[in-house]
């Protein structure tokens, strides 16, 4: 009788300590999984910008995000599997384990930091800007008060434009629909990432020459690689790679290769600064 009671008490204790031991014995689950399957699954944003787009002749994804994903896979010595994500699906895909890491132009903010972990060194700095018709009479962010603004579902700019400037968000599944809706007059302005998305449009596209961007950029925030909460080993390992890529100028070269214009001053900053630290 006492023996069975003892066994009943001990089993959970034994199980718990075994589990604890297994946790401490390995690196975190994601790194384990990557190493055992020799495959890194990366969620990349493929929306038609220089950061992520489709090559029409090969139907393969290409862009800055894709290049970074492949480079990280090369350094880890594993195959890379790319999964396309949208701003409205990226967090869920990471949380659900569908992807191991996110390279999705997802800037760091405190709210995201609560539910996810990230690689400490950023790989880009992006701020948001609003494009609006030159004739719309909107010259400052404050002019957006009470006006409808097109934006992407899941964008980090929704809260700032609502709380700080009192704009009314109209969120679309992706940036392409949002911009089309702007041209259709559903909103007075569209707020998206400045350097990756809006500046190239305003610079090179003749159809957008009636539009202008608002300054200053809001929420200039570092774009980081995201991992699930608690995956510190993965984040640390990727961090060493990212720092190295800044140091040897790989990011600046990739930015130019993908036609990101104007070259980001933040990248130049990190390229200069990082060798000094260490």
């Amino acid at each position: 009788m006492t023996l069975t009671k003892l066994r009943r008490l001990l089993t959970p204790v034994v199980l718990a300590s075994a589990m604890a031991a297994s946790f401490t014995a390995h690196a975190d689950a994601t790194l384990d999984k990557i190493n055992s399957r020799h495959e890194l699954t990366v969620g990349v944003l493929i929306g038609g910008s220089p950061f992520g787009s489709l090559d029409p002749s090969t139907q393969q994804p290409r862009g800055f995000n894709v290049d970074l994903a492949n480079e990280l896979g090369k350094r880890l010595g594993v195959k890379v599997q790319l999964v396309s994500v949208l701003p409205s699906t990226r967090v869920q895909f990471l949380q659900q384990g569908k992807v191991d890491i996110l390279i999705a132009n997802m800037e760091y903010n405190a709210q995201r930091g609560e539910i996810l972990d990230h690689v400490a060194t950023p790989y880009y700095r992006v701020g948001g800007t609003a494009i609006t018709l030159k004739t719309s009479g909107i010259t400052r962010w404050e002019d957006l008060r009470g006006k409808p603004v097109c934006i992407s579902q899941g964008s980090s700019y929704i809260r700032p434009i609502v709380e700080r400037y009192g704009a009314i968000p109209r969120a679309f599944p992706g940036a392409s629909q949002s911009l089309l809706a702007l041209r259709g007059g559903s909103c007075v302005a569209a707020v998206h990432d400045a350097a990756p998305l809006l500046y190239p449009l305003l610079q090179s596209d003749p159809e957008w020459h009636d539009y202008r961007a608002l300054q200053p950029e809001i929420e200039p925030a570092p774009s980081v690689i995201w991992v699930r909460q608690g995956e510190h080993d993965t984040a640390a390992k990727l961090d060493t790679f990212v720092r190295d890529l800044h140091r040897n100028g790989w990011f600046i070269a990739t930015e130019a290769k993908n036609g990101l214009n104007p070259p980001s001053p933040a990248l130049a900053e990190w390229h200069q600064q990082l060798p000094a630290e260490n």
Partner: peptide
Amino acid sequence: SAIAVGDVTYQSIMIWTQRDNV
């Protein structure tokens, strides 16, 4: 919800993309 009309599905998407309570 796909064209931002503000119906209940759209509002739910707005909430769960920030809070992840799908």
